[in-house]
Structures are given as C-alpha cells and as structure tokens.
Design a protein around this nucleic acid. Structure first.
Length: 285
DNA sequence: TGAAATGTTAACGA
DNA sequence: ATCGTTAACATTTC
C-alpha cells in the first residue's frame, strides 16, 4: 500500500542507507521491474533495462526525492542515469547484510552499497524502477501530480483543486485523484473522511467551506501522525500481510462499532474500491 | 474456490 | 467532450 506515509518513510530510510554511498554492484532478479515509464505494466519492461542499471556501479547516491507516491534517486551526474521509483501495491526496499545467503523472496533487484544489499522486493510486481536521464527526473516526479498531500494547503485552495472541473464527483474519489492532490490512497482517504465527519459519497460541490477547512487541516495532520507511527527501523510491514493489528479507526472495520459513537461501520464500493464510514459521524448531508 | 487487496490506467458507457 | 465506472495488470492471502 504504500500510501504517502509509507513512501515518505522509504524516502527517509533510503536517504539514511544510501545517500553519500557509492553503488558497488547491481543485481537484477526480475527484468520486468525495470520500466521505461512510471505506471507501466509489469509486462512492459524496458528492453535494455538491465543494461541501463549495469551503468550504476561506481556512481554515488546524491539525493532521494519524493512527490506524492513517487520517489526519485539522484546519482553522480557523470553516470547519466537517475532512477524514478514507484512502490506500486506491495513494493518495499529492505536492507540485508552481504553475508546473507541470497536475495529475499520476491526480490526484483538489488543495489550493493556500503557493504550491504538494498533489495527492491515486490510480490505483486506493480512497482517499478525507471532509469532516466538526470534532466528528466524532476519532471518525471512532478508531471501530472497535484501538490504533495503532506504540505499544508488552505481550505479554499484545496476545494478549488479538488472541485476543478467537476462538482458532482464523490469526495472520496476526487481526493484520491493524484493530479489534484498527490499522496492520498484508499486507506488514508477513508480515515481522513472519518475524522472530518464527511461522508465519502458526498459530491464535492456540496461540501461547506468549513468542511473544506477541516479536510485541509486534517489531511496533513493525519498523514504526519501515520508517519510518526511507522517503525524507524526494521522492514516496512503492510496491512495485508501480517499479523499486525488493524491500526485504523474505520478502514476494514465493517460491522464493528464506531470508536466515537458506537454505530456500526458500513462498507460499500466506490469506483471499485472498498470504502468504510460511520453513518453516525458521517451523515450523507 | 472466490473474493479482495494499499496503485494506476486503458477502455468503455452515459 | 466530459464525466465516471469497470476491467486489467500479477500475486498472495483469507
């Protein structure tokens, strides 16, 4: 899942692990993970992807950037190749000692630096690594994305962005549109709407100014709180795979009592994704 | 066995 | 044309 908090967490970890270090080796386990453009299909691999990545050894990692759910890795300019990273649904980077026997399960590619392996692991294979010219990285990170959802935005500006061109769209679907606001995914948009007391199916054109103010304030606050709860160390864990308890107030809690008012959390589908809300706290208006 | 899963988008229908 | 929903991608898990 990575949504914005998990992607930002990756940015910080990759900075800590790699910035200032020289890439010693590259190991490609799955050439399909190397793509010509972000958001391409696993079957649309970059034909010369492995060859492009083999230029990296000797390059120093200069910076790790993030916008919305996209990550960028700047390398020594002389190498002529930077990387755009997308985690897709299940992608993550893990660090392993070089003494470890081999790549972890579902490893797609690895970078050796600072005496350790840094593996891009992605069971569902929607994530990718996109090699590109350094001049292209900035636009690849920004093109088609609205402002980063972690940055505070005024209520009226948020309303203008999210409503632009449509007044009848459901607020949940509009908030997940990355070209309007970059970073909210299915889980956190559901949580933010619950905290804001806004029903996910409300048309954007019908929200009041004070509701927009509340959303504008709660979006960055909620994302920062989610980020603060992430482990500083160890591998990133996503909800579906583990025995970790569901940390969310309403997401994946259909039929359970609302933590605020005790009413039963409801579930429905919007644009093919599950939505959860409390009928008591989030009236249809 | 079937359904659903955190992301994104091409293709379809109104 | 614009809007919005569905199907698809690939794989795992319940």
């Amino acid at each position: 899942m990575p949504e914005l908090p998990e992607v930002e967490l990756h940015a910080r970890r990759l900075r800590r692990w790699l910035v200032g270090r020289v890439v010693e080796r590259v190991q490609v386990e799955d050439a399909g993970a190397i793509r010509p453009r972000p958001s391409t299909r696993p079957s649309e691999a970059m034909p010369d992807g492995p060859a492009r990545l083999q230029r990296l050894p000797g390059a120093r990692v200069e910076a790790v950037l993030r916008r919305g759910k996209r990550l960028g890795m700047r390398l020594t300019e002389a190498v002529g190749t930077d990387l755009l990273l997308h985690l897709g649904m299940t992608g993550r980077w893990v660090r392993r000692s070089t003494a470890e026997a081999g790549p972890p399960r579902h490893a797609r590619l690895g970078l050796a630096a600072g005496g350790r392996w840094h593996w891009f692991v992605d069971a569902r294979r929607f994530g990718c690594v996109v090699p590109m010219a350094p001049t292209e990285l900035r636009s690849a990170l920004e093109r088609g994305l609205g402002p980063d959802a972690l940055e505070p935005l005024g209520g009226s500006e948020l309303a203008a962005r999210v409503c632009r061109g449509r007044g009848r769209a459901a607020v949940k679907v509009a908030l997940m549109d990355q070209s309007r606001l970059a970073g909210l995914g299915n889980i956190h948009v559901v949580e933010v709407l619950f905290q804001s007391g806004v029903h996910p199916a409300r048309p954007v054109g019908e929200l009041s100014a004070s509701e927009w103010e509340r959303l504008a304030e709660l979006i960055p606050r909620h994302l920062r709180a989610a980020l603060a709860e992430q482990p500083g160390d160890g591998d990133v864990a996503y909800l579906t795979e583990g025995e970790i308890d569901n940390p969310f107030a309403v997401y994946a809690r259909a039929g359970q009592p609302c933590p605020h008012c005790g009413e039963e959390i409801e579930r429905a589908r919007q644009s093919g994704r599950s939505t959860f809300w409390c009928p008591g706290c989030q009236p249809r208006g």
